[in-house]
């Protein structure tokens, strides 16, 4: 039996389990990840099956958690740590940027850091401040880190295993509002694409929608809705934010001549800004319209009552598609 119907939470959980079964150097660490199984239950049952050593409840201290993971990785382990919510990564930001990202480089490759930092990210769950943020650009901006975002249960299952197998430090972003949302069929006999690749998830000819994490679902719905307006929309799930996999993006935009990037993160200096720049540099003469960006507002993330105003939705994506055709 290789096929099952799973949620993203289940996919990640099964992926972590598979990685731990394959390599006994893989261990999990974080706040409440052990006995509780994590606040989102992503590590549910793993401590019971793998023991307290391999699924370690840590003190409440993010800088300490990441620093400890660095030391473990330097001594031959493959730690996978959970940052409970996106906004809690900031106390660990120092370790991530000043230590994790630099270790291989400054040691001339003598000290690789196979370390995965899992971060549930994005909004839409009615949480309090600092529980709904999208900090990906801050890490993608940092040389020495790799940054990926999964968008669906099947990718969750494979990408977490691939990230753990990578010898580089990986910031692994999980769209928290999708954890328990949709189910998908996982067929473990079908080999996954390589980790640091983008994938076309819907074919189209008129405009290219670029998204990752929680916005992939929104963009797929927008593409479906656009059909009734006679528009054929291609959707690319970027999956990797650092390095960017520009091949599929440029090939698509050269065909469609139009591109819209969508993310929950603030628009200013978000991933959309970099994608826009690169598309413009690489295929200027194919463009029928400027690359447009749909993003969260350039304000702090709002309180729960107002988050639906902040989060880009179907209408905002379709509006950008319309604007693209207006050029």
């Amino acid at each position: 039996m290789s096929t099952s119907r799973i949620t993203l939470a289940k996919g990640l959980n099964a992926g972590l389990r598979a990685a731990m079964e394959q390599d006994d150097k893989v261990m999990l660490m974080g706040e409440d990840v052990g006995r509780l199984g994590g606040v989102f239950r992503i590590t549910d049952g793993l401590q019971k099956d793998f023991g307290e050593r391999r699924v370690l409840d840590s003190p409440l201290a993010e800088s300490g958690i990441v620093g400890t993971a660095v030391g473990l990785a330097m001594r031959g382990y493959r730690p996978v740590i959970e940052i409970q919510f996106d906004g809690f990564v900031y106390p660990a930001y120092d370790q991530i940027v000043t230590q994790v990202a630099k270790m291989s480089y400054r040691s001339q490759g003598k000290v690789p850091l196979p370390l995965v930092i899992r971060i549930p990210f994005g909004g839409g769950i009615g949480a309090v401040e600092h529980h709904s943020e999208s900090p990906e650009a801050q890490f993608a901006h940092t040389p020495g880190l790799k940054v990926v975002a999964c968008s669906n249960p099947v990718d969750g299952y494979w990408m977490i295993q691939q990230a753990i197998a990578s010898d580089d430090p990986v910031i692994f972003l999980e769209p928290k509002r999708q954890y328990h949302a949709d189910k998908a069929d996982l067929d473990t006999s079908v080999a996954p694409p390589p980790l640091f690749t983008s994938q076309v998830v819907r074919r189209g000819d008129d405009v290219t929608l670029l998204a990752y994490g929680p916005m992939v679902r929104t963009c797929l719905a927008a593409a479906e809705a656009a059909v009734s307006e006679g528009r054929s929309v291609e959707v690319i799930d970027l999956r990797t934010l650092s390095p960017l996999d520009m091949g599929p993006v440029l090939a698509s935009v050269r065909r469609t001549g139009r591109a819209v990037v969508a993310h929950e993160a603030h628009r200013n200096l978000g991933m959309g800004s970099e994608l826009s720049a690169r598309i413009t540099e690489e295929c200027f003469y194919s463009l029928q319209a400027p690359v447009l960006r749909v993003g969260g507002f350039d304000t702090p993330y709002p309180a729960a009552r107002n988050e639906h105003h902040f989060l880009p939705d179907l209408d905002r994506v379709l509006d950008a598609v319309d604007r693209s055709f207006a050029f």
Partner: peptide, 27 residues
């Protein structure tokens, strides 16, 4: 740094080496 001599590195972020040592001890 020179791990081959058990010297796992200097650090110019004051205090940043302490949690890393914790990880090495955990290992």
């Amino acid at each position: 740094s020179a791990p081959q001599h058990g010297f796992h590195g200097e650090n110019s972020i004051v205090g940043a080496g302490a949690p890393i040592a914790v990880g090495a001890a955990l290992a």
